[in-house]
């Protein structure tokens, strides 16, 4: 009788190769989920259409902002991709609840792989909803006024911003442990924030006595966003990976 004391499968190579391979496997799983659970995609598509139409058609007249559609679209883009990033939170909470993370933790895989796959899934969902929003925006009169490269750069910054926010939500999902809570909590936080910000209404429009804001962040929006992206990634990627390696379903 030969005793089985050696593992049946050895490591597939360097830690980096393993990381890339595991991350790709997890990403594919999340892409299949988008295909298999079409509700996700339907709401991903309907929500931005609803917001673009509501704000551009219902509010535009009352806004007293010249060319409101072009002002609005930037805000809608940002709001929609941020909401798209909450999928990571709900999915991680669900995996934790189902005991799937317990199983992952007994497998010889990179601890970042599942998170990479999940956040990549959000990125794909957000890219699709960006396309839908652009189409809807174009119908109601939104036009690109910058150069082609400026336009691509803007799209890139938006997607990167939503990607880094996915990591924040993934950490939150593993912390609150309930998919329902993460959906409600993120809505409670994100919805007021988008209204307080200048996403839908220019700041000096909400209160005429308020002096025209001159904050550095408002004058350097692109740099501000990039700083935000870097800060979120540097802080929340390691935190989320560490949480994944230590979190337990009970």
């Amino acid at each position: 009788m030969t005793a089985v004391t050696q593992p049946a499968f050895e490591s597939v190579g360097s830690p980096l190769a393993q990381f890339v391979s595991d991350g790709w496997i997890a990403t594919r799983r999340n892409l299949i989920k988008i295909k298999r659970v079409p509700e996700i995609l339907v709401f991903t598509i309907l929500q931005p259409i609803m917001f673009v139409l509501l704000f551009s058609q219902v509010y535009a007249g009352a806004m007293n902002v010249p060319d409101y559609v072009n002002f609005l679209m930037a805000g809608i883009f940002a709001q929609t991709v941020i909401f798209g990033s909450t999928f990571s939170g709900a999915a991680m909470a669900q995996d934790l609840k189902d005991g799937i993370i317990d199983r992952f933790r007994t497998l010889p895989m990179s601890p970042a792989a599942v998170l990479i796959g999940r956040t990549n899934g959000d990125l794909v969902i957000n890219s699709i909803s960006m396309l839908i929003m652009m189409g809807t925006g174009w119908v109601v009169g939104w036009r690109v006024t910058t150069s082609f490269w400026g336009f691509l750069g803007g799209v890139g910054v938006l997607l990167l911003f939503s990607y880094s926010f996915s990591w924040v939500m993934a950490l939150l999902g593993m912390s609150v442990r309930s998919p329902e809570v993460i959906n409600n909590a993120s809505f409670m936080i994100l919805f007021p924030l988008t209204f307080i910000s200048n996403a839908f209404v220019p700041i000096h429009n909400t209160n005429p006595e308020f002096p025209e804001p001159t904050a550095w962040t408002l004058q350097n929006p692109i740099v501000t966003v990039i700083i935000g992206i870097v800060v979120m990634l540097v802080i929340f990627v390691p935190l989320a990976v560490r949480k994944f390696a230590s979190v337990s379903s009970r």
């Binding site: 593992p7 499968f9 050895e10 490591s11 799983r29 299949i32 989920k33 298999r36 659970v37 189902d98 005991g99 799937i100 317990d102 199983r103 007994t106 497998l107 010889p108 895989m109």
Partner: peptide, 18 residues
């Protein structure tokens, strides 16, 4: 040990959509 230990959790930890 992760190459040598297999674990089946009490709740079926599989993905329903796959």
């Amino acid at each position: 040990l992760r190459r040598r230990v297999g674990y089946m959790t009490q709740d079926p930890s599989v993905y329903p959509d796959l």
